[in-house]
Write a protein that binds this DNA or RNA. Structure first.
Length: 737
DNA sequence: AGTCACTGCCTTTTT
DNA sequence: GGCAGTGACT
């Protein structure tokens, strides 16, 4: 009995979806329907009654992908037949497993553990480096140490096994040991711990492994190319008895090596499951051939052996447009005006348009332009709702209430709002608690219940302020199972008078209060599930998953764009230093990954692709001239329309092979070209080479370069005490004489 | 204990 | 151009 929806698939997709249970690897390029195949595979498993919904474990890379797949499955199967089905991320699955097993097993944390996010991790480590190891954090960047520790952890190296041959290694090993201890003392797990301990539990406790193997009869993994070794081991453990494992992926879209993703997992899988059936999906249903041609050219230039051929089932469309713009400011302007034109003149809804960039910081200029034109937009990440101070404060309160041992959270709120517990008082308390074998938070709860043993150990004032905090925490703590997260939040906000605190802080207090209200709304979704579930969500659901509400065009990083598609894609800032990012330039593997990242960006586009190359980019020092991204050299003039010839003047000889004006021009460009003034007043040319100028920060200098675009004038100035030229918008300097 | 002003730095991408 | 960390002052 074949379900009707199989008719929507092509023969290779059907082969994958209906293959008999066993190890299956689906490899496919972008737009080939990988996620769809995975989703339908789950549906097929259920309709064939190979398993019941709760016996299937489908793992995706992000929570958003998990949610979408789940929704799709409910649609396909109906609510009844999908009841109990769980689509999850590796981390969420591991957290779930550990929370469950920590109750029975002797682990160095209990089931109330909290998850340390990136900021917690760095905070803990910074404090260790500064206060305990007394090293200079300018030389030993906490972030660098952190990634070294991460690597060790993922490789399964314990602190005591870490190499200590060099001074550098010694700092890492020592910081690692203390970092682990700090996490355990706070009953915290970091992202790696979730995986490390899940693997360890399954390896060390055969009866637990047996339970999970019996429970999860089918294991499916999306974005397999971006799994790390721990995740692979987790999958292998779960699947090794029944071997019903189904993975989909695309090596060309591997973009998370920096986070530990290991493409060798594919080889491992094929070695561990030698009978794995490999299915290739070769047709692309997303993009036009023109867009795929650009994508392939970019990849092929990076690896001469690249032979894959992406074939567009949708046929042909307009060529991709390579556009040179003067500055990043003009770039933002261009994108916005083009988006407006596409919406008005081509009837493309803003929802079908995305702007992608390498780093979140690049969203700023775009946002400003969008606001100038009053265009609605959605921003993925960057705005860091959860990174806002007021949100972090309140979440820290919730975390302490749930897990009093959580020291980083406690230290965050101990004096917020100010209640007279300064560094001295706090240090004293921590020491006192430790001398009695308690975490600072647990000791506060002790104090609330029986103050006497603590009274004489503290100065009266310190005792008073600490008791008052302890009382509050204790009352909330008692209610932690009883109140919904929203009620708890309301109670805390009310009792600490947080509104008044925000008002006192002055600026932006209205916005901050709005954010508090937004957090409250989010909490309301967990009325049923409770505080533990809410906190888990807060820790594991990243900003990436929280598209800001509303409609409009989408702004996101190329990383965040993985798995998505849009009719129109603008890739901005395709210049050296940004893409490839300067941090990736000295490592060939990292560089290769940057190339793949561009490939991912390009292949998000269905119909129209604009690639933008600014001549100047904004840096902390002001403007700097920018070079076109080296990856763009792979583009021959016949592949793109637009400014190819202007961007590659040195290749002028090839230019007659193509690269015309784009076939479609929006009115705003036509008007400017014909000389009837655009909407922007033209700026006078104020500077010439040789002019002497004064800059508020750098002092006096001489103009040695002048560059113009409509509206903007950028000058390069040589200052006597600077080796390099400095570039500025002309508005920022004064002419002398 | 809390506040304010000054300095220096700028390590991306995310579960 | 912004923020965190620092030190001096109230």
């Amino acid at each position: 009995m074949e379900p009707v929806w199989l008719a929507e698939l092509n023969p290779q997709q059907i082969e994958a979806v209906t293959a008999p249970p066993g190890p299956i690897v689906v490899m496919a390029g972008p737009g080939a329907g990988k996620t769809r195949v995975l989703t339908y595979r789950v549906a097929y498993i259920l309709t064939q009654q190979w398993a019941r919904p709760w016996e299937v474990l489908a793992v995706t890379f992000t929570n958003k992908a998990a949610r979408e797949m789940h929704e799709r499955l409910v649609e396909l199967l109906g609510p009844t037949r999908s009841e109990g089905l769980w689509v999850s991320t590796f981390h969420a699955f591991a957290a779930h497993l550990l929370r469950r097993e920590a109750r029975h097993l002797d682990l160095p944390f209990n089931q109330h553990f909290a998850i340390a996010d990136q900021e917690d991790q760095l905070r803990i480590l910074t404090s260790i480096l500064k206060n305990e190891l007394n090293v200079d954090i300018k030389r030993y960047y906490p972030a660098t140490i952190h990634s070294a520790i991460d690597r060790l952890k993922r490789a399964g190296v314990f602190p005591e096994q870490a190499p200590r041959t060099s001074a550098w290694d010694q700092v890492i090993a020592e910081a690692y040991a203390r970092y682990e201890q700090a996490l355990r003392d706070s009953n915290l797990l970091d992202f790696n711990d979730l995986l490390v301990w899940a693997v360890r539990v399954l390896e060390d406790f055969p009866h637990v492994l047996d339970q999970y193997q019996t429970r999860y009869k089918h294991i499916l993994v999306d974005e397999f190319q971006d799994t790390n070794y721990l995740q692979y081991r987790l999958v292998r453990l779960l699947a090794q008895s029944h071997r019903r494992i189904f993975v989909v992926g695309d090596m060309d879209q591997a973009i998370y090596r920096w986070r530990g993703a290991d493409y060798r997992n594919l080889a491992r899988l094929e070695a561990d499951f030698p009978d794995a059936r490999v299915i290739l999906l070769e047709e692309n249903y997303r993009s036009t051939q023109e867009i795929l041609d650009v994508a392939m050219a970019i990849l092929a230039a990076g690896s001469p052996r690249y032979r894959k051929r992406l074939v567009a089932r949708r046929g042909h469309g307009p060529k991709a447009v390579l556009k040179q713009v003067f500055s990043e400011r003009e770039q933002a302007e261009f994108v916005v005006r083009m988006a407006v034109a596409l919406a008005r003149e081509r009837g493309i809804p803003l929802e079908d348009i995305a702007v992608m960039y390498r780093t979140n910081a690049q969203s700023r200029l775009l946002e400003e332009a969008l606001m100038r034109y009053q265009l609605p937009y959605r921003l993925v990440g960057a705005l860091r709702f959860y990174g806002r101070r007021e949100i972090k404060d309140l979440v820290a309160y919730l975390r302490v209430v749930f897990n009093p041992d959580d020291r980083p959270s406690l230290e965050r709120i101990v004096n917020v709002p100010p209640r007279g517990i300064g560094p001295r008082t706090w240090a004293r308390w921590v020491e006192l608690a430790q001398s009695r074998g308690r975490s600072p938070g647990a000791a506060l709860l002790d104090l609330a219940q029986d103050p006497e043993p603590w009274r004489k150990a503290l100065p009266p004032r310190a005792f008073r302020v600490l008791s008052s905090l302890a009382q509050r925490l204790y009352r909330w703590h008692l209610l932690r199972e009883e109140l919904t997260p929203r009620q708890m939040l309301d109670r805390i906000v009310d009792e600490i008078n947080y509104r008044a605190y925000l008002r006192n802080m002055g600026d932006e207090d209205e916005q901050r209060w709005e954010n508090v209200q937004e957090l409250r709304r989010l909490a309301a979704d967990f009325d049923q599930a409770g505080l533990a579930a809410f906190l888990e969500r807060l820790a594991l659901v990243s900003d990436q998953d929280t598209l800001t509400q509303g409609e409009g065009l989408t702004l996101l990083t190329m990383h965040a764009a993985k798995g998505l598609e849009f009719r129109v894609v603008f890739l901005v800032g395709l210049v050296e230093q940004l893409l490839p990012h300067y941090r990736s330039m000295d490592d060939p593997e990292a560089l290769a990954e940057e190339r793949r990242l561009l490939y991912v960006g390009i292949t998000r586009a269905k119909d129209l692709l604009y690639m933008l190359v600014p001549q100047y980019r904004v840096t902390y020092a002001g403007y700097e001239p920018a070079e076109p991204s080296r990856f763009l050299h792979a583009l021959s003039p016949d592949l793109v329309d637009g400014d190819w010839a202007r961007i590659f003047p040195e290749r002028a000889g090839e230019a007659d092979r193509g690269a015309r004006e784009p076939a479609w021009k929006p009115t705003f460009l036509r008007r400017e070209r014909s000389g009837t003034n655009g909407s922007k007043p033209r700026q006078r040319r104020r500077f010439r080479v040789g002019d002497r100028v004064i800059h508020p920060r750098w002092g006096e200098g001489v103009v040695v370069e002048v560059d113009h675009a409509d509206g903007d004038e950028i000058i390069g100035v040589q200052f006597p005490d600077q080796d390099d030229l400095r570039y500025f918008l002309a508005d920022f300097v004064q002419k002398l004489d």
